[in-house]
Design a binder for these strands. Structure first.
Lengths: 126, 126
DNA sequence: CTTTCATGTTAGAAAAGCTAACATGAAAGC
DNA sequence: GCTTTCATGTTAGCTTTTCTAACATGAAAG
């Protein structure tokens, strides 16, 4: 499933294509970017390049606006989502077991404690 | 799975993107088109638009050429493939059972024979 | 040595995209 | 009512990208 993700996040679509795919105007798309709702990549020549994920997000934005949500509201939603994602990532990164933690701290102590005289490998009982 | 196919055959990628995705030059890509190996769509303004399927085919072409197959050879391969596909499609369309065939022929005869001298529905033993 | 093949290179034109600025209709707030 | 704000339209001038067409070329084939 990694390849699909990769393809969906490949920034390869130019403005014109995205306009057609979303039925938004260039003005709208650039405005949403200016408001921080999307961040397309840029080509060497400074042209915007969008991914399929970007297109999906633009469609979402379109729907939110059609539902009367204003841009500040949409931004709030996305900020919240990314905060949640961050938290999840931290959580995922934290599948450090207690054992892992102990090992890491131990390493840390060994490296530190090793100042003038390699401290003979004293093992603190963490 | 229809959506995936649709996306893969959506012609949305401009030349520059395809160049990067395939590491081919514009000259090469246009030449392969001139030789009938690919047929990208065109934008209103006459710019070529490629799909992900096109990109895959270009990568195949690149590999064939690297393996010493010349363009005529590649074309032969693709012609053969599409012939095979055609045949398969016909075959798929042909899940007409003998019974179907008989019914169709019968209808045909009835419609035809049905005027001056209704041939009384004679059934030829096909 | 002459063709053929696959590709490079160049020139001139047109399309597409960029930024920046000003314009505007509808809502919101006073 | 009048004034802001929001989301979008419009325009202008400029740069990048792509297009076609033509000529150039190295390697292989004959």
């Amino acid at each position: 499933m990694k390849e699909k993700e990769l393809r969906r996040s490949l920034a390869v679509l130019p403005m014109g294509t995205v306009m057609k795919l979303t039925s938004l105007t260039a003005r709208q798309i650039r405005y949403y970017e200016a408001q921080g709702l999307i961040t397309p990549e840029r080509s060497d020549g400074n042209r915007r390049l969008y991914s399929l994920n970007d297109v999906d997000r633009l469609l979402e934005i379109r729907d939110y606006l059609a539902d009367g949500v204003n841009i500040a509201g949409i931004k709030a939603i996305y900020d919240q989502q990314s905060a949640a994602t961050m938290a999840k990532q931290s959580a995922q990164q934290q599948p450090l077991t207690d054992e892992d933690v102990r090992r890491i701290l131990q390493d840390e102590f060994i490296r530190q404690g090793g100042l003038g005289h390699p401290n003979s490998g004293i093992q603190r009982p963490f």
